[in-house]
Amino acid sequence: MAVPVHYYLIVSALLFGIGVLGVLTRRNAIVIFMSIELMLNAGNLSFVAFSKALEGLDGQLFVFFVMVVAAAEVTVGLAIIVTLFRNWKTIFVDEVRLLKG
């Protein structure tokens, strides 16, 4: 029995919601970053589900490019976190309040 595409989209929406929840509630920069990865993956899941529903491959090509950009983003973001830690001796984002005055 084939699984309808709706089910994949619902899983994707739930995964995205969990990711947003992580960004809103956690204060550890690394965990916030992992939550962003969860949201990116939810988007990828939607892409592949639509690609299956439309019986094409373009969605899967998009997922490939999203993965490349996400890999680049992870390297740059983690380097920023390392620099943050070097300058502030913390990675908790509520203790870095340079713009708050």
């Binding site: 899983v11 990828n44 899941l45 899967q60 997922v63 490939f64």
Partner: peptide, 17 residues
Amino acid sequence: MGGLYLLMQAEFIALMQ
């Protein structure tokens, strides 16, 4: 999620995942 991609016959994406 790799398993989910395999279920959707997206083997390449599952491997990349």
